[in-house]
Design a protein around this nucleic acid. Structure first.
Lengths: 152, 152
DNA sequence: CTGCATGCAAATAGTTTGCATGACG
DNA sequence: CGTCATGCAAACTATTTGCATGCAG
């Protein structure tokens, strides 16, 4: 409820700079992704919005998400089962912690991994442009409740 | 050409133990995945095998890969674009280094990441069961050739 | 022989595309 | 007002499923 307002303004400004129009649907999609504590999927975004916009189409969600990916304003997290989740609040690569039971995704505090990138560049000769670091397990709540769902 | 022979025997033994039959097709799929230096996709496996087995069906490849995933004998690497790659040689989680230009995937030497898991367990209360650590960039060869292809 | 594995074809899920209509700037 | 965005429907891709046939054990 704090930085997300600024983040939204930032996203809007960026898209306008690049010559894109601002429609109610697009704004609504940006709003959800600017908050994105829950790292929503395209479908989650669509489900939320079709209440406010009965004519909302999945295609519109996908097209806007694609636009945000291209402009670097959203980070895509793809999973082995084909599902994708998005982060518009922190659109740069960072580690994630994913609960296999409830599907929640949080951003842990983890700074030492930057070192790994440098180390790899030195030892392998690769020019590393991005990375993805995901840990899977059970969040404290689901450890208590006992695991139920399952994700890749 | 060394440990891969043992790895194949290990996979065969494991599946037999679990009561699965050994067919020529299944064995051929296991062979490819036991070597899997290149972390092949299901399609790559299929393409290679349909030469030797003209009647080979993609379904057979997928069914066998599913079996290997379930039994823990193959590691699945899913990407945001929906494509999957598999590692039957080292079927446990480990970091990968992926070239965005040529799509090659190698296993860098990186030991310090084990520490990250312990650190996360302590600070977040999550019970971490698996992880995935992927770095994306350009391999030395593709840096010279100039980048062409693109992957998620 | 008995049942699991194969292989074809059809079904599925998530996403993308084409095109006509509508509205932002 | 011209152009880009929307929204419907159809196309697409990777994968899964149903079912009849075949072969491993």
């Amino acid at each position: 409820m704090d930085n997300t307002v600024d983040r939204l303004k930032q996203m809007v400004a960026r898209l306008k700079e690049l010559g894109h129009r601002m429609t109610p649907q697009r704004l609504a999609i940006l709003e959800i992704l600017a908050e994105s504590k829950e790292h929503p999927s395209a479908e989650m975004v669509y489900e939320q919005l079709k209440e406010r916009f009965p004519t909302m189409s999945p295609a519109t969600v996908y097209k806007n998400i694609s636009l945000l990916k291209e402009t670097g304003e959203a980070l895509e997290l793809g999973f082995a089962d084909g599902s994708n989740r998005y982060d518009g609040n922190k659109p740069y690569p960072h580690p994630h912690l994913i609960c296999l039971a409830c599907g929640s995704i949080i951003d842990p505090d983890l700074t030492s991994f930057q070192e790994l990138t440098r180390h790899l560049t030195e030892t392998t000769g690769y020019e590393i442009s991005t990375y993805r670091i995901d840990f899977f397990g059970l969040c404290p709540t689901c450890q208590i409740n006992g695991s139920k769902g399952r994700r890749a």
